[in-house]
């Protein structure tokens, strides 16, 4: 009995992966349906949509940056102290005394810049491939909101090292916000937690950065993914129809998905019926 067999041929492994390695079409369907992470995907995708040069994987990579940022961010939270007196010194500590501290901080910084760039590029890809067109209008709107949240997440994190770069970048930013017509003063006070940058600003931006905005991001990204599925999965070419062709009623995307999964699972289905997942 090989090592692979030993590892997989037992009650515990089979309780996690009921079907074993997906080596038949039926198992390839079931692995996607049964897995929380994989079931964000449909069971099958158009071959055209797999070309890297179509999407460049930019949306997925943006989410991947968010995952990396969460992991490195939690690590940094173990050592970072959100106080005006200690913040800068705690960064020095991370850089010099903490195992992998400098690596994790560098990674957090570069992943944050990468995420802003990837989200902008993802929007540009979606635009130039016309993938915002009906029925995907609202998901494009969600995307614009996600772009804004990405900017806010990055900008709130920028203040935390409490160095000259951070302090004065936030001064410039707060001045911009403060120039809003009519409610500028209120916005300025709301941003700074007072009339000047200080401890209230730091704790406010820290809280937004580590809990509020990431939660908003998770909720909105979930909606974004959900809508990708409900709006008919990844976009595929749509042409103007010549007038004489026969008309077929469109299936709502969700039903088409469920039906397809049922069809794909059916041939060897036997006793168990796959659950349509919506």
């Amino acid at each position: 009995m090989g090592l692979w067999q030993k590892l997989t041929n037992n009650r515990f492994f089979k309780s996690i992966y009921r079907e074993g390695y997906p080596d038949t079409d039926r198992k390839r369907v079931m692995v996607v349906i049964n897995s929380l992470a994989l079931h964000l995907h449909p069971v099958r995708v158009p071959k055209k949509a797999l070309r890297v040069s179509y999407t460049w994987g930019l949306g997925g990579l943006s989410v991947w940056m968010f995952v990396i940022l969460t992991i490195t961010g939690v690590f940094l939270m173990f050592y970072y102290i959100p106080s005006v007196k200690d913040a800068w010194w705690s960064i020095i500590n991370i850089n010099t005394s903490v195992y992998f501290g400098s690596f994790m901080r560098n990674m957090h910084r570069w992943a944050a810049h990468a995420m802003v760039i990837l989200v902008l590029l993802h929007m540009t890809r979606v635009f130039y491939t016309g993938s915002y067109k009906p029925p995907r209008e609202f998901n494009w709107v969600l995307g614009v909101v996600l772009l804004t949240v990405t900017f806010l997440l990055s900008f709130t994190g920028y203040l935390l090292p409490w160095d000259q770069l951070a302090y004065w970048a936030i001064t410039v930013g707060a001045q911009m916000g403060g120039s809003t017509p009519i409610i500028g003063k209120q916005i300025n006070v709301a941003l700074l937690g007072g009339h000047q940058i200080g401890q209230p600003t730091l704790i406010r931006w820290y809280t937004l950065h580590v809990i509020f905005l990431p939660l908003i991001m998770i909720v909105l990204v979930s909606m974004h993914f959900w809508r990708v599925r409900k709006d008919g999965n990844i976009s595929t070419p749509v042409y103007a129809a010549p007038p004489e062709e026969e008309e077929v009623q469109e299936l709502p995307a969700a039903r088409a998905d469920a039906q397809e999964e049922a069809e794909a699972a059916a041939p060897e289905g036997g006793d168990e019926e796959p659950e349509p997942e919506s």
Binding site: V45, A49, A241
Partner: peptide
């Protein structure tokens, strides 16, 4: 609006898309 949608051939997400990701 009368349009033709042409997704073309479909392939399984496992392994085709999962491996790329």
């Amino acid at each position: 609006e009368r349009v033709i949608e042409d997704p073309g051939e479909r392939v399984h997400v496992w392994p085709h898309l999962v491996s790329i990701e």
